[in-house]
Design a binder for these strands. Structure first.
Lengths: 211, 211, 211, 211
DNA sequence: GATGAATGAGTATTCATTCAT
DNA sequence: TATGAATGAATACTCATTCAT
């Protein structure tokens, strides 16, 4: 391993260290109430160091959202590669993946919507924004591919596959968000998983062609 | 009309005046970048006056979300009152109502999710929070009632009506949010209404029992 | 006196209050080492209030320099108005005025050079910069007018009056600055006034035509 | 050449390398907006290395001003050595030298005044300050010597030679500074050299005794 | 000597909120 | 009621300087 490479690896480790700390603090306090000093303390670093790895607070925040997109993309791509699966089986696998995405980081979906507010996006660097765009499109594209197969097979309704992918993703995140906010409004109930299951079931029936 | 009542009415008029101004400014700049002075200027009032009618910035913001809930509630209740309509016709009317909710205030849906972040909710007065809770539950309940009729009639799947209502609302807001963020990510496309139509169509097919 | 006018006057009073405090602190600590909080404390105001009257630190600083230009302009204009004076008498009066400019605010000349560094000028508001430009030009123009009379009379050398005014002003501020820095380097001597007198004498002989 | 000496020479070379880089960056950005990292990059060194050769930023800056004093001193001493020249010829040579000083480093004159602000001088090491003092005095002394000859010869006015030297230097730097700031204030004119020529001409006539 | 990652003190600026009028 | 001048706490970000390697 060359010196160059070792340094690169070390740098990535620091980024991860900061992101882990940031995730903890952002999750607990939300974006506005979290200070860079909070994060620095949590990461056992000085505030200045954070800026060696992230341009500013927004960009640190956004990089957290990027991780879930990366995870999603990997999972969905993986599903697509399983050529032996039927569209129905792939859809099942996709739903399974969505549960995992949720478990991977339940709070970060809420962050993603914060991220996607124009207020935030405008402060990101061109390169990070580009990365987010690209990953979003790829992920939605990969989901759409699953639907396309089903549509081509005639077992799913003849809708535009990307539109279906958008709806699938919207429904997923809409449910997650809505259940999260319900949890605040009436903290004693936690229906998320079952609501999600019902939503998926309903979605599946919705896209299926009547035989 | 007594003096008391006239005063009350006058006060309500001012609240509305402020809310109209606030909506304009929040819609344009988002929550964080909007200052109370911006709103005061837009309302042609002084900053101090705003605090005579709203406890703080968060509460002013939240009251805007309350309006859309009120509007939604009125519309859905109205649908429910039409006893001559079949469940299917009511569902159509409900969808129609959702389009109107969106048209009533496209950006405020995004605000609603901001509202529901714990960060914000914690700063609201007990009474306002109570009002939001109640109205949310009533609205969801009214939507659930429509589904319940269909389920009881056997034309909709035997799911818990409230779960269906939640999914319906989640899907609606999920699509609105996702399309809004896509507009920023890939600004050249604006599919909202058609995506929404597809989503509703799919939802309808999803909940319908196979004959 | 109308309310409008009284407010205006009150506002001007506050500006002066801040400028007086700022001058004291800047003189003592220099631009960089002076904090806005220092000034606020000296003015017995809060830091935020400073920003109600001055856009930023640089602009507060620049406004101090503007005062000396204003003073200079008034004095020189006054000299020009004395139509009964000969060019020589006017030149004497001008020199007198320069001594007073110096006494008015000995340290602020140094500030003026700080001001005129491009570093600083770039941060000023368009309007303030405009004001500085205009006042500079007017002042130099007024000085030039004195020389022009002498030139037209044939008692001063046939140089461009504005060039003479520039040199006069340059020599004045050059001497002030140089003596100020010498005071730091060898704090035991204070030749300023006599050096200035010699400089003026020399200048006068320099511009005078041989009879 | 011993090892000691070679090391010394190497060290001096590095100092020069850094100063050349520093001059470029300071000239472009001014003192405050220049960072040590900027200079390090320009010098193709690391920030830490700069501190091996200069105590701190101020001292690096000051050492640049020292160079021009050194240059000035060399030139003026050289003029003095030319015993065959008349005072008038020496004065001409001095003026020539000043043009060269200006050409040597037009912006550094402005820096010199920054240097001489008490704000900066207070942070310099005793030894550097001493060096600056000494060189200033020597340079002024050398200039004064030229004037003294003329005075002794009776062709220049009977003023204190050091006072004349101070005025000469003040006028020179005053004109340079003023023209530099005018360039910012009214960027369309660039009279420097001609103003300087007029100033020198005027100075010469000013110091000359009427025959 | 040279490096450059890490430091952390230092501060200009903002803006929700208050309160004397 | 309404005002709007004043407040002052709060914080993102910078950068000269250090020091382990």
């Amino acid at each position: 391993m060359g010196i160059q490479e070792r340094k690169e690896r070390e740098k990535e480790r620091r980024r991860q260290q900061i992101m882990v700390a940031a995730k903890r603090v952002f999750s607990e306090k939300g974006f506005n109430k979290t200070t860079m000093e909070d994060i620095a303390k949590e990461a056992e670093l000085s505030p200045g160091t954070l800026y060696l790895y992230f341009k500013n607070k927004e960009e640190l925040y956004a990089s957290l959202s990027l991780r879930i997109l990366q995870y999603l993309h990997i999972r969905v791509t993986h599903v697509n590669k399983e050529t032996t699966l039927s569209p129905d089986q792939k859809l099942s696998a996709l739903m399974e993946a969505m549960y995992d995405v949720y478990d991977f980081d339940p709070l970060i979906i809420i962050n993603m919507f914060h991220l996607q507010s124009s207020e935030t996006l405008k402060n990101l660097s061109e390169s990070l924004l580009e990365e987010i765009k690209e990953l979003s499109q790829k992920s939605i594209g990969a989901i759409a591919k699953i639907f396309k197969e089903g549509i081509d097979n005639g077992i799913y309704v003849a809708q535009h596959p990307v539109a279906l992918a958008d709806i699938f993703w919207s429904m997923f995140s809409g449910v997650v968000l809505w259940e999260a906010s319900k949890k605040i409004i009436s903290p004693d109930k936690d229906y998320l998983k079952s609501t999600l299951a019902t939503a998926f079931e309903l979605f599946e029936r919705g896209i299926r062609n009547p035989d």
